[in-house]
């Protein structure tokens, strides 16, 4: 994205937001995500307006093209596609955000410890990060998704429930999504560790915990936010692929990915079933990637050319 000077100096508390809004990518990302999130939140309202719900099966009205009662048509069981998209979006966004937050927490912990402790710990943790990055992700995700939770000692009725299917996918995706955050958090910690204010804090007798929590984390926060935003896109993609393969979100719950599972067989009869869920995944991931790019430009002083 183009790097432009902000037309006027951003002042005070809104500086970050203003800087973000002056990047075309940040603006576009916010707009895309805002539209999608608002629509998904408004799902019950849309359901009321249409006078139906996403679970009502009507086999006589299956695979219908768009009509006034079903603005985007119906799926293979005659359920309203628009409502299923909106409710499915809630699941996709929720799992994506939760997994990204979990991944960010894990990555921050690993990165900050590696950068702060240094030495062998650092070498080990970074080799670990490189190793995870190098692994063929999807095949391993499939193995994890196929693991029988009951064999891990969890109660059988919990293991087969929807909550478990969401939590499982969140955990799995987070286990692989932390690497970018860890790298950036480590880099930020390394440079902050040697700064005068950290030395001063240490000279005053601050404990390592205090130095990390009070002096290093706030300084590393912008890198962490950028890396997290950029990784949400990948996390949502990973969830959608697993759900598409039938290993992620399980029915009766639906996510955009799982809505595409049967779309391929029906691609001749009902191409719109293949079109919409994928388009929403694409728009959401693109939104997060653009937002991340905008944030990076707004928060990274080296890439910001205008006065701040």
């Amino acid at each position: 994205m183009s790097v432009e000077a902000a037309p006027f100096p951003a002042v005070g508390r809104c500086a970050g937001l203003c800087a973000l809004l002056h990047r075309p990518s940040g603006c576009a990302g916010l707009l895309l995500l805002g539209t999608i999130a608002t629509s998904c939140l408004a799902a019950p309202f849309v359901a009321m307006l249409l006078g139906t719900d996403p679970e009502t099966i009507d086999l006589l009205a299956r695979l219908q093209p768009p009509t006034p009662t079903h603005p985007l048509g119906t799926d293979e069981l005659g359920r309203d596609l628009l409502l299923r998209l909106l409710y499915g979006g809630r699941v996709s966004l929720f799992t994506g955000l939760l997994a990204a937050l979990l991944a960010a927490a894990l990555g921050t912990a690993i990165g900050v410890v590696a950068g702060y402790v240094g030495g062998r710990v650092d070498a080990f943790l970074m080799r670990l990060t490189d190793a995870v990055i190098a692994l063929p992700l999807l095949p391993l995700l499939i193995v994890l998704a196929a693991v029988d939770l009951a064999k891990l000692g969890l109660p059988a009725d919990f293991a087969s429930g929807s909550v478990a299917s969401v939590l499982r996918i969140v955990t799995i995706v987070a286990l692989f999504g932390w690497t970018t955050v860890a790298r950036l958090a480590r880099a930020a910690t390394l440079s902050l560790r040697e700064r005068e204010f950290v030395l001063a804090a240490r000279a005053l007798g601050a404990s390592d915990w205090r130095i990390v929590l009070v002096h290093i984390l706030p300084g590393a926060a912008s890198s962490i936010v950028v890396a997290t935003t950029l990784s949400i896109g990948n996390v949502i993609l990973a969830e959608s692929v697993l759900s598409f393969l039938g290993l992620g979100i399980q029915p009766p719950l639906a996510s955009w990915g799982s809505m595409l599972t049967h779309a391929q067989e029906l691609v001749f009869e009902a191409p719109w079933l293949a079109l919409w869920p994928g388009l929403l995944i694409f728009a959401t991931v693109l939104g997060f990637n653009l937002l991340g790019d905008g944030l990076q430009q707004a928060l990274d002083p080296r890439r910001r050319e205008g006065p701040s």
Binding site: F244, L260, Q264, V267, P271, A274, N289
Partner: peptide, 21 residues
């Protein structure tokens, strides 16, 4: 950005839709 934001399976479906169907 569009390229790496595309869900792989969806892109495949779209290409099938366009070039085969």
């Amino acid at each position: 950005f569009a390229g790496f934001s595309l869900p792989s399976f969806w892109l495949a479906l779209l290409l099938i839709l366009l070039f085969s169907v």
